[in-house]
Write a protein that binds this DNA or RNA. Structure first.
Lengths: 341, 341
DNA sequence: TTGAAAGCGCTAACAA
DNA sequence: TTGTTAGCGCTTTCAA
């Protein structure tokens, strides 16, 4: 195979151990002359340490596992990019797994990551840790980026306050005079989606506005999903019309990518945004700034989430006894032109 | 640490070797009774094979490295998702690296992947392999998803015919009567971008239309990039106006994500798409179908690219002597409403 | 059909 | 300051 540490040792006329000392800057000092000879041999032979062997021997794999629902959702693409950028700057490789909100996929990737001895794990959505058959999860430093309804010693978390943020967004629509406000959410049974729906409902109840199930449309977190959900809520034969005798005049949409589909649906129905239908979405991705009209959206600070995620997780990786950290973040409403401001 | 194969062997009253035979279904047969005892011990102890040790011993890492410019570009997000889905179905883990078209990043990730003993590599853009200081690249099965201007025995390729596809797109604009057609491209010096620019120029020259540098705007492959590039080409003080005394009436845009920014720029300038400015982009991502107006775009078949990529690369991984494969694909023009049809 | 043992490439404790 | 050596957990050859 390739050139090994032994080859370098022979070429430099030293023992393999000294080569290690040079490579790792320790744990023993090496004289300047020997070090130079070894470094010369390394570059002459084109030696590269075998990361697999090093990991097996007891060092770490310098990698972390990142579970995300779907990279085609720009929110998770931005998150994945930010996470990767931060960890990569510290020498960690990020292993990414798309779970599609599917429990089997989640467990499969989780087990793969653990079998491959990642140094830590980040869950960005959808996972339910309780009762999971995954082996070895309890010993892993874990960081959770949303509420999984589960606490454990080895879990740090950075939560977005979806309920409060959704309520704020809906309240903004109410201030514009809307009472019949539809809600487009991701697939049901996803904890993070439930939070948004509850926020919508609580705020509608608070204002004594309708908050029945006929105003909620569940759909995939994609343009297509948002599009069909909006058609469902806004069309003349839809449930909102049946129940209330008119269309919703505003929509709260749980993700930017769905809102893009919803805007398109309005266009298909010949309705103007925000004149006929006001829209506020959730996420605050770059894409939200370039729709027509630009989206008003509840922005989550992805850069901050990513950098905090890194420091929380590295704390626990470097010192397994370090206690877990928790933070809850509020989003900020970015006013575009889709809400009617 | 965790439970090892030795623990299983002891619990089942057999030697460690037999445990391996059971786990790997070979290379030696195991009697039904022994097998049952071992399987019982495995599940009772919650044993998981250590993937690192297995990889070191000579098995493979069951992983491939995937280099991509930026996952925030929806084209590469879709590609990454498709690649991951296909390889994951075959038991491979895809390690993804964002290079941002930066050569240093490319080489860093490449070296990391090789040091970690990936079974193969996929480059999706921007890399220039020639003269690279990366150690061990020659021995890797490599698949290249665009033209790197480099051939080697270990490299398979799936190329999109960017030049011809760009020309087709520009020709379509010409058929609508446009003569002054601007070109928005990604960063210069990226091979794949050069192909598109050459296609635009060749087709403009063929029709005896202007094809000077004043009609080209280079920008980041992002909404922002496309937006500022379009402002540059369409504004009254821009170079096209200075040289030709009028604005371009059409734009060929090298990526969907830039086209989204370009549409927005038209909106900012008070110009209608396609009436004042016709736009055709390149890529064919899902996002292109939900802009207002929907984009006419030169679609690349990402699913087909991903599945072909997998079969090409697995051929070479399973049999290093398998000869490399090459394919060149044409895109198909998806007609939206941004071109004026 | 099963057991014993070599060794993948590395780190680090121990010896010199 | 440097050399020797015992493993990390696994696969697989060889012997029984």
């Amino acid at each position: 195979m390739a050139v090994t540490r032994l080859d370098v040792a022979r070429a430099a006329g030293v023992s393999p151990a000294v080569v290690s000392y040079v490579l790792n800057n320790g744990p023993r000092p090496v004289s300047a002359g020997t070090r130079a000879r070894i470094e010369e041999a390394i570059s002459r032979l084109g030696y590269r340490p075998n990361a697999i062997a090093s990991a097996l021997r007891g060092g770490s794999t310098q990698s972390i596992g990142f579970l995300t629902p779907n990279l085609r959702n720009p929110f998770y693409a931005e998150l994945a990019e930010a996470i990767e950028r931060h960890f990569s700057a510290c020498g960690y490789l990020v292993l990414t797994g798309n779970t599609y909100y599917d429990r089997t996929q989640e467990e499969r990737y989780l087990q793969t990551f653990i079998d491959r001895k990642v140094d830590g794990l980040i869950f960005s959505s959808g996972i339910s840790l309780t009762g999971s058959p995954v082996v070895g999860l309890e010993e892993q430093p874990v960081l959770v980026l949303d509420d999984v309804g589960y606490q454990a010693k080895n879990i740090s978390s950075i939560q977005t306050d979806d309920l409060a943020d959704a309520a704020t967004a809906v309240e903004h629509l109410q201030r514009h005079g809307h009472t019949l406000i539809g809600c487009i959410a991701g697939p049901p049974n996803i904890p993070i989606e439930a939070g948004k729906i509850n926020g919508w409902r609580r705020q509608q109840d608070f204002a004594a506005n309708p908050s029945g199930d006929e105003l909620i449309a569940y759909a995939e977190s994609s343009e297509d999903g948002g599009n069909s959900a909006a058609l469902l809520l806004l069309s003349e034969h839809g449930r909102p019309w049946t129940v209330h005798g008119r269309r919703p005049t505003a929509l709260f949409v749980a993700s930017d990518v769905q809102a893009i589909g919803a805007i398109y649906a309005c266009y298909e129905l010949g309705m103007k945004v925000p004149d006929d239908v006001a829209i506020i979405s959730f996420g605050g991705t770059k894409t939200a700034a370039f729709t027509l009209p630009p989206l008003s959206t509840m922005r989550q600070d992805i850069e901050f989430i990513a950098s905090t995620a890194m420091s929380y997780l590295l704390d626990r990786i470097k010192d397994p006894l370090h206690e877990s950290s928790h933070m809850t973040l509020r989003g900020n409403l970015v006013i575009g032109r889709s809400c009617g401001c």
